[in-house]
Write a protein that binds this DNA or RNA. Structure first.
Lengths: 220, 220
DNA sequence: TAGATTGTTAATCGATTAACAATC
DNA sequence: TAGATTGTTAATCGATTAACAATC
């Protein structure tokens, strides 16, 4: 019964397919072939077909894929028809920015609470949410069926908070703190390490510059 | 002369090595073997040695690696001894949050300007930066040797802004807008697609739950 | 039916892991 | 010197690409 494990490489590409298909759908396009999608997304048609076929046959030979159907199927695979209840831990600039971002709600990610340890922030409203004291976090998670916690706190505090979250039944952690969390294997962690991302960008800039030094024209 | 191209998989791991080595250094630890680092970071010792050896021999047989030396070498590889001048385009919640985040400056990423098209924001100060009108962005990039632009604007505006940035000599774009940018190959783009990241998390949560349904105990 | 395009198997490529000789 | 651990080559594994038979 165990559906063969899908690689994270494939999963990581699904949201991008979902985005392109959504746009095609909005443009009123009804069908698309793997080759057309390949041209659009700059990945091979082969990879597209392989990726989709991990989840069953969504296409039709000689015709291609129905955009709307495929869009919905990928949404279903990603679990977007379910809603998720989130809390944000750490009401600093980043926490508040995420709380204010409406588009997550559109996909069923509902912010239910935002917590901070700084009393000066208690009661401050971010959209429809009042910042609450950290002490209330544990009972809140349990009582409101929170399944995802967004960690926007300093790295020193992340491990302790993660442990409490796990104890209270969280299922996933969206981790913006700059540490690697250690959690039981039934808890999913998705890291967003912004400074790592920025360093990678810097490397690629430097690299390009030193590579092309002395090679004024090099456009393959 | 062309240093053999290093794969993005390797580059992507460098910031994490850098982080762990920094912590070891701060703890006063002087030497570490690939095996010890392997235990700490949960990657194979083989991978660690392979990764480092992409850039030359940093260790000493029979001894291991000098933490401080290795830390500095990786910093150098990442180009962290150079400074980068950044601007933020889009002074919404996320743009302001990034501008307020001090740790980037510590690594030589200096925020020099922040721009928005909303007149209501002009002149508002984020730390030491005044939000400026978008119209001033192009000349500012040229005059201040800006090499990285942070895009925290709606996706509809991103392509146009990116084009202007490229015309004015930007080297890299840190893209938080939810589109894939098309730029010349001498311009580096690093995407941070937050909603994609969140969808991936949701998939993994759902997946774990459906997999273990009916398998109450399954801790290998 | 003929043409198009998928689903799927096979081939290739690249990345990871293992093994071990070199050497500190 | 003996022991430890790297640097590096070889083996394995997994992911991507190519090819083509199935079929709409």
């Amino acid at each position: 019964m165990d559906n063969k494990e899908i690689s994270q490489a494939v999963i990581g590409r699904l949201p991008r397919y979902f985005r392109y298909l959504g746009e095609l759908k909005d443009e009123g396009i009804e069908r698309i072939s793997s080759q057309e999608l390949s041209d659009l997304m700059k990945v091979t048609a082969s990879q597209i077909r392989q990726d989709f076929n991990n989840f069953g046959g969504f296409g039709q030979q000689g015709y291609g894929y129905k955009v709307e159907y495929l869009y919905e199927e990928i949404g279903r695979i990603l679990g977007l028809e379910k809603t998720h209840n989130l809390i944000i831990i750490g009401a600093g600039n980043l926490g508040q920015a995420l709380a204010n971002y409406m588009n997550f709600e559109r996909r069923g990610f509902l912010f239910k609470g935002i917590f901070d340890k700084n009393p000066a922030l208690y009661g401050k409203k971010i959209r429809n949410l009042e910042i609450k004291p950290m002490e209330e976090m544990e009972s809140f998670v349990k009582q409101n069926e929170i399944d995802i916690a967004v960690l926007t706190i300093p790295k020193g505090e992340a491990a302790g908070v993660a442990e409490k979250l796990v104890q209270n039944g969280i299922r996933g952690i969206w981790n913006f703190a700059h540490v690697d969390l250690t959690v039981p294997k039934n808890i999913q962690v998705e890291n967003v390490h912004l400074s790592d991302s920025l360093m990678k960008l810097a490397y690629n800039i430097n690299q390009y510059e030193s590579e092309s030094a002395g090679t004024p024209e090099r456009n393959p």
